[in-house]
Amino acid sequence: MNGVELFLLGRTLMKIGEGAMPEPEGGDFRHGGSVRSVLIVASDVSAHPDSAVGEIATRTGLPQSQVSTAVARLKEAGAVVTAPDPGDRRRLLVRQAAELSGRVAEVRATTIEDALAAALGNPPPEHVKEVSEALEVLARHLTPQAPARMRG
């Protein structure tokens, strides 16, 4: 596998992950870029609690406006809370909510098998299980901290 193939595989996996996400009540969350932005911001906030929007934008490479929108969606879903920065009251600091909201619990409880089966062309269940297990191995070894190790 070369870098291009890996990139394309990663993109395919992101699309499958987006397809596995449950629709929120009221719909209107199926905007591919929005899903990715929200997940990228959620991951960053998890790793860096009490970060300002600008800091999240710098770390993720997302435009500040996208980060602000993602934070608003995460706040609406009950996944994060914001508070004024004691050192600079104009800035808001973002951190994960202490309690899981119903929406966050729903998203975390959703499995990938149906989306994976659809992406694989509805193969026999043992093939879906095999691919799912391979993805679990990759997830154990390639954590969200992997890109930072590459830069460091």
Rank of each mutant, 00 (worst) to 15 (best):
S46F: 06
D44A: 14
S101L: 04
S34Y: 02
T69C: 09
S37F: 08
V80F: 03
A77Y: 10
S65E: 15
F29S: 02
V80K: 01
E55L: 01
A70D: 10
S34R: 14
L100G: 09
D85I: 12
T60Y: 01
L92V: 12
S37E: 13
L74K: 05
S68Q: 15
D50C: 10
P24L: 08
Q66M: 14
E23F: 04
A52F: 04
A47D: 02
A57H: 12
T82K: 01
T69D: 14
D28I: 08
A42L: 13
Q64I: 13
H48V: 11
E25N: 06
T110G: 02
S46V: 01
R103I: 14
R108G: 02
A105G: 02
G33M: 11
S43P: 01
I40W: 01
A97E: 11
E106R: 06
R90W: 12
D44L: 10
V45Y: 03
R95K: 15
G54F: 07
E23D: 03
A77N: 04
D28M: 01
Q66K: 12
R30W: 11
F29G: 02
R90M: 13
V41E: 02
V41R: 07
R89F: 09
G27K: 04
D44R: 10
S34K: 09
V80E: 03
E23S: 05
A105N: 06
A98R: 02
A47Q: 10
L100W: 13
K75S: 07
T60E: 07
R108W: 05
G26Y: 06
S34E: 13
G54M: 08
G26M: 12
R90L: 12
V71F: 05
V94L: 10
S51D: 15
G87I: 00
H31F: 02
V53G: 12
R108N: 00
V104R: 04
G26T: 05
V41F: 04
Q64T: 14
D50P: 05
S43F: 07
G87C: 00
L92I: 06
V81I: 14
A109V: 07
R73Y: 07
V41H: 09
G87K: 13
A105T: 04
V38G: 05
S34V: 11
A57V: 13
A79G: 10
D44P: 00
V53S: 15
A70C: 13
A98H: 09
E23L: 04
G26W: 00
G27R: 03
D50A: 15
P86V: 00
V80Q: 04
L74R: 05
A105C: 03
D88L: 01
S34T: 13
V45L: 01
R95Q: 14
A83Q: 15
V67W: 07
V45F: 08
R103A: 03
V67T: 05
G102E: 11
A70E: 11
L100E: 15
T58K: 12
F29H: 02
P63N: 07
A97T: 05
V67I: 09
V41I: 09
P24W: 13
S101A: 03
S51Y: 06
A83S: 15
Q64H: 10
S43V: 03
G33E: 10
E99G: 03
R91W: 03
A77D: 05
T69G: 13
L92Q: 15
L100D: 15
D28Y: 03
A77W: 14
V41T: 09
R103T: 12
P49L: 10
R59C: 10
R30G: 06
Q66Y: 05
E55W: 00
T60H: 10
R36M: 10
A79Y: 05
